[in-house]
Design a binder for these strands. Structure first.
Lengths: 159, 159
DNA sequence: GTAAAGAGGACTAAAATGGTCCTATATGGC
DNA sequence: GCCATATAGGACCATTTTAGTCCTCTTTAC
């Protein structure tokens, strides 16, 4: 369903918590309590975020995690990539991907373009946006297809 | 990785095949041969597409599948929804979704907006687009964030 | 009647995911 | 130096999801 994994979801919630109080280090235990998730799970998530460079960690007593850069400079793409790896809709979205069906496929290029569009969209959403409690007006809500594409009736809107 | 399932991928390839020759019925065997995938798998995919109304089927001898409407009226959203169910990035993207963490979450609304933006984007991509063999110029390639959003450095571009 | 086709569902195998736990290492305070 | 507090880094298992196959039934053209 084009869904984020639970861990990515947790990551977003945790990062938003940190972003709302960016000037001090946060421990896994503290965040687990605030977010109401089990400590081991939160710990794992934090480790992944640190490993991919979105958080900086300090070990030992009085340790914890801080953002490695401003919330406005951390994108949704970054979060997703940190937990789930490279974003791409299909196997062949990646440069080295070989599906062996390229000749009979005929849609690979176009899916890649769609992937790219989604990446671009997610690059435009920052942690600062996500952490906002006030309703966020995303520009991307524009009905893109009506701007430049001719057709697309858009039936089956019960998604 | 925000990835489509393999079956959705197959569905797109199969639908594109049909879209390129929309005036006659196509059997599962024929499509399996053309797409170079095992017959049972292609059959299953076709059944799902038919069940969700994107294909119409005729049984019996000389039977097969035809598009239920024009390729320009079948969207990427439709394809994905047919195979994977409703599109949504998080559990709580759905109306009835209850994650029990709503109070401590604080990002649900914003993720929903992002989900909506992706849906809109996918609504703008049609089967006609996907089936085009010539490079498709998607309007959505515009760097959306630079149009209206201030920040987003977009590091980690190795996606 | 027979052959060709889809409908529907049961079933299995494999892979991804979520979650926990253990040991090692770093840091600060006493 | 020692101890308490943290993270680092894996190993590990349970569960769920996904992919793929197969079987039986129904429909239809000839």
């Amino acid at each position: 369903m084009l869904k984020l994994s639970k861990l990515t979801d947790y990551a977003a919630v945790i990062m938003a918590q940190i972003a709302r109080d960016p000037d001090q280090a946060h421990t896994a235990s503290e965040l687990a309590a605030r977010v109401k998730l089990p400590h081991p799970t939160v710990g794992k998530t934090l480790k992944m975020l640190a490993k991919s460079g979105l958080l900086e960690s300090r070990r030992g007593s009085h340790g914890g995690y801080v953002l490695s850069r401003s919330p406005a400079d951390i994108t949704a793409s970054d979060l997703i990539a940190a937990i789930e790896g490279p974003i791409g809709m299909t196997e062949c979205s990646h440069a080295d991907g070989e599906c062996g069906l390229l000749d009979s496929c005929g849609v690979a290029d176009n899916w890649q373009r769609v992937s790219q569009a989604i990446r671009t969209l997610l690059d435009g959403v920052t942690l600062a946006h996500l952490a906002q409690s006030s309703p966020l007006k995303l520009p991307v809500q524009l009905p893109i297809q009506s701007v430049t594409l001719p057709t697309a009736s858009g039936a089956l809107r019960e998604h």
